[in-house]
Design a protein around this nucleic acid. Structure first.
Lengths: 334, 334
DNA sequence: CTGAAAGCGCTTACAG
DNA sequence: CTGAAAGCGCTTACAG
């Protein structure tokens, strides 16, 4: 590997001149610049990341803390990881991906050793143990998912309450009076997946405001329990004309199951849900749904984090950003 | 952030003694060790990764080069990424994940700047442009996916030919004489996804050896083309009693489609495929299949890479490792 | 417009 | 069993 000294020697200038030529932080005469550029090309020089990090205390790397709960639907996670990685790269950052079970420990390790300039926390829960770790660390972080205590944190999440209200309104406006909501599995509520009750509570409140019956039920996360549970829910609510699906694993299983039961959508049952376009494509889901916009959430989160790292004024005070998502009509309601 | 000098001062020893206490590379008196340990704990000291990397030319990071082809089924990718990340961590490495379209450039950048000790290339194709980049770089790499030229490379892949043969045998042994194979989309063949023709060619050859008719067809990668294509394939082969699915996107759509057509498995049609347990779970796939073992592939690949990095003799000469996978009987054949 | 020098925080030969 | 010192490859004040 060529070093900056090799380049300086080859170009017949000093080390500092090469460095400034690279950073553009002071003007270089055209001839000097030319010689440096040629030397760099010829030696195939790339600055050493470790040395640069040691000197500048900046690594150009963001830590991405991913958590895989067994009761969660793994394919959905990739929708967040990819846009975050791509946005990061566009802003000049690489991604160090950490999937350890002990996320707090991983976060601390990456931060304290100075491997990262900032941290992205995915799938944050109500009392997420990673938050204390994040607060006690020098690097800024951004959360995707709303915890109970957001003091001093930047948070980005979907506005699940607004999403629930607009799905209820959508059904009520079409005349539905009896609606079932399939929530995430009970475990998700219990471990503090706030999106689960934010969605459910808002849906229940709106239903009561609009004077309709909304029956909330838990979904399941694994076959064959998913199918059994859905059958039971449909059996228990023969008069329901509307179904709100707020559970990836269950909604993925729904088309086949409804077909089995001979239930036609939307003739016999109106179905709405909440997922992304990609998710709909992978699982061939034909339901009108709030676009969960994982790409948008990831992009917003990373941009906020990058501003926080560079200390731009635009970063503003710490706060929570709830994204209002659009409904995508796929004709599954009537 | 505390530095090693802070620890040395607090413990009343020299910097080098702290360093040796950390590495265990020379013996330290119990009292000294105790004072150092206490100082480390008290100051919450973690060695600076950049400084260590600069000094040792080792980063403890592996670069993971992921590629997302639009004609590929993204959810399947996560099955490889996760085990690789977990195995790496178990061996003491963190993962720098790179998803750039220009994988060769990304590889070169990560390697030349000394950000990584080694590289894992996912989804390698016949003439993968990343291979030249890998060959011209100081760090070792390991490929998941078999390219045309493997000189000087460590490769791990599923034995797709063996998988195809055992699926054909499985059907022939049950008495099937007319079988259809749904391969990956044409684009995958064209861009050099070697697994596509390794599987198809071996299946065709085995079919001819066993004297049965095997009709190969291309799959599609996007709805609604997937369904249209599958309908056409089934319409065109009314006498086929066996179906081999070698395409994630198509097989994920198959249960619903067969149900629509009123085709019962295995009564009317025997179906076999190639995918992982996780994939089967996510998509509720009920078919007997070769276990594609993404976790095993990832683990083998990372272990091989780690041996190559540490220069262990156990790493042996460069070579290709084709993993023979097991068949998981889910009762979809007769 | 350019150069010489200090120093980021480590590890490890060298010395005792 | 322990310490003083060199040096990994950069960036940036300081000086001209």
């Amino acid at each position: 590997m060529a070093t900056i000294d090799d380049v300086a020697k080859a170009a017949g200038v000093s080390r500092s001149t090469v460095s400034y030529a690279l950073s553009g932080k002071r003007s270089i005469s055209p001839q000097t610049r030319g010689r440096i550029d040629r030397a760099i090309k010829q030696l195939n020089y790339t600055p050493n990341a470790g040395a640069r990090a040691l000197r500048t205390a900046q690594t150009g790397v963001l830590g991405l803390l991913v958590q895989f709960h067994e009761d969660e639907f793994a394919p959905a996670m990739l929708q967040y990881i990819l846009p975050i990685t791509e946005t990061s790269r566009a802003l000049g950052y690489d991604i160090l991906m950490m999937t350890e079970t002990d996320g707090a420990e991983a976060l601390t390790r990456a931060a304290e050793s100075g491997m990262v300039d900032g941290l992205v926390l995915l799938d944050v829960t109500q009392n997420d143990p990673r938050l204390d770790a994040l607060r006690s660390v020098r690097q800024p972080g951004v959360l995707v998912g709303l915890p109970g205590d957001t003091r001093g944190l930047d948070v980005v999440d979907l506005d699940f309450a607004a999403a629930a209200r607009s799905l209820v309104d959508h059904l009520v406006d079409l005349g539905h009076r009896e609606v079932v909501l399939v929530s995430p599995p009970r475990h998700v509520f219990e471990r503090g997946g706030a999106y689960s009750w934010r969605f459910r509570d808002a849906a229940l409140q709106r239903a009561s405001e609009r004077g309709i019956t909304l029956t909330p039920r838990y979904g399941e996360s694994q076959q064959p329990a998913i199918d059994e549970n859905l059958h039971a829910i449909l059996d228990d609510n023969p008069d329901a004309t509307g179904l709100i699906m707020h559970n990836d694993a269950s909604v993925a299983a729904l088309p086949h199951l409804l077909h089995q039961r001979g239930v036609r959508v939307p003739d016999d049952l109106s179905v709405v849900s909440l997922y992304s376009r990609d998710f709909a494509r992978w699982f061939s889901l034909p339901y009108t749904a709030i676009e969960s916009s994982p790409g948008l959430l990831g992009t917003v989160a990373v941009k906020q984090l990058a501003q926080r790292i560079t200390g731009e004024d635009a970063a503003g005070p710490h706060g929570t950003r709830l994204i209002t998502a659009e409904i995508v009509d796929r004709g599954s309601t009537r």
